[in-house]
Design a protein around this nucleic acid. Structure first.
Lengths: 313, 313
DNA sequence: TCCCGCACTGAATAATTATTCACAGTAGAA
DNA sequence: TTCTACTGTGAATAATTATTCAGTGCGGGA
């Protein structure tokens, strides 16, 4: 019937538009049909299934997993990177590169970047960042104090400084230990004007970069000297904590596992973190799987994970 | 390396754009990438083959054949209609419907339509046209005289009148025989003021509807009484004529086969026809295949054909 | 080292496309 | 028949997308 003729016309238009790359106005002239009708018929071409658009995922890319992560944890964006070996270092490479690409691609002019220390992933990410040419961050703020051991302390400092260099920003260091000996000691540190200058920037942070720590097999915590006593760690574990972000511990549901420890940590608090427009969490490896769950459940924006084996659909 | 990350990003954007129907501006906000970059990355998505657009021809539709016709004969548009039986009448139905759809879909407001008589296809087309609602033609001009036999003469008149009604236009009849007895007789007819009024409109014709006649097994010519003598027809054939448009005969290459006959035909001449912005030729059936070749080679804009069997690729 | 020329970016803007609007026509209900 | 709701149209316009432009960095040849 006339249906055939109409479909023929639609297909013809679709061919001219998608196939031959003509503008709607050109088709309009050629076929003596108004541009508005061409536009409407092209819309129908999709409905009728005459044109179909197929998107094929590039190799080593996992859109389904990413979508599942976004969906499940309400993330604005999730990026999954693949890794062919199960070595810790290979995994760090993979997420470092992925995170760096995201960062470079995504950082806007004039951002105030908050960066947590104590994270091998962040270290790797920064290692992989090329100097930003186009845009400059306003400043890079260290949002977690360093570590007791001075040599590791300087690691944290370097992380912040390095990122500031790369982004052309002013570094704002947090010249204090990440974990004070006591609540009182922390208050004393807060009296320091440099410390205050930095913590005052917390509210201005526009993008926070954080790692996700595992409570159980934790390299960082092990290296932290005796910031935390074994007793404290066991207490945390007993109360369900499985990981941390900025040394704020979380249970499997992403609930904050508080306690006296919180009073000793010199860094951004969870509510402060939640107030940051964009929180970028970087983590990888099987060790981090459960903590990721926790962290994601909380309030983040972005998250990387990298597994040694191809993730399941 | 970074290629993977870039492709991942492109695929992500493509999914958001084509799959989820987001605007580029929304994606821009979501992914923290400028709209200009989104646009550019979407373009790359096509180049990289991440998005592919497939156009599937509806059933009973022959885009390849149509393209070949357009290509080969330089037509602006070609429409092929299918027909399941080989009966003459079924073929006429098919092209009538197709041509009517084209006409309805395509006629603009205020056109001056020229219509040839002597064509069963045009008859059928007009039969299939629904009254035009939206637009009105200015006038419908008969561009070929009627036929000797008065009853058939009135056919031509009705064709023109009918189309004028359907398009809300003023009919301009050509009250004269299509083939005068002699060159002199034609000149006499041209003296008639009604005839002149109509022929004066020829130059204003904006869309000409013509059939394509076959010289050899010609129903119309047979019915024409003795407008042409057998001798004349044989002479035409000898000189290579295989078909006609508006009783202007053409050879297999589309060249005009002139002669004294031309001086007796009361209708639009080939040069006049060529000057019309849009010439729509309607023909179908195997009988018309060779004449189509001729006609197409000439100078037309549009052409239908309908074959009983599915056309080859 | 200094200078092209190329490549790439975001903002501004041009170009293109989708939608609104006003108006008919049509079908179905009253 | 008359009304109303709905459909479909092109012109005008709003919205969206592509491109230009100006600026910057990089690479490599002089």
């Amino acid at each position: 019937m006339s249906r055939t003729h109409e479909l023929r016309l639609i297909a013809r238009i679709a061919q001219l538009y998608y196939g031959d790359g003509l503008k709607q106005a050109e088709i309009s002239r050629l076929l003596h049909i108004s541009q508005a009708s061409i536009s409407r018929l092209l819309a129908r071409a999709q409905e009728e299934g005459i044109v179909r658009i197929a998107i094929t995922a590039p190799r080593d890319t996992f859109p389904k997993t990413e979508a599942a992560l976004r969906q499940r944890y309400g993330l604005e964006e999730a990026i999954v990177a693949d890794c062919f070996e199960d070595r810790e270092d290979a995994i760090l490479s993979a997420i470092g590169a992925a995170a760096a690409h995201y960062f470079e691609t995504t950082m806007a002019d004039g951002e105030v970047i908050g960066i947590s220390s104590w994270s091998a992933s962040l270290l790797r990410m920064v290692d992989n960042i090329h100097p930003l040419k186009r845009v400059k961050a306003e400043r890079v703020v260290q949002i977690l104090g360093g570590i007791g051991n001075p040599s590791v302390q300087s690691h944290a400092t370097q992380l912040t400084t390095r990122l500031a260099q790369l982004t052309g920003a002013e570094p704002m260091l947090l010249p204090a230990q990440g974990v004070a000996g006591s609540s009182a000691a922390r208050l004393v540190m807060l009296g320091d004007s440099y410390v205050r200058a930095t913590t005052d920037q917390f509210r201005r942070v526009t993008m926070a970069l954080v790692g996700i720590g595992a409570l159980q097999p934790s390299v960082m915590l092990a290296n932290s000297g005796n910031s935390f006593t074994n007793e404290e760690l066991q207490d945390l574990a007993r109360r369900g904590a499985i990981g941390d972000v900025c040394l704020r511990f979380l249970d499997a549901e992403g609930r904050h596992v508080g306690g006296p420890l919180d009073e000793r940590v010199m860094g951004m608090s969870l509510p402060e973190l939640a107030a940051v427009p964009r929180v970028v969490a970087v983590a990888g490896g099987e060790r981090k799987a459960r903590p990721c769950t926790a962290r994601c459940s909380a309030a983040s924006s972005t998250c990387w994970s990298s597994t040694a084996s191809p993730p399941s659909a």
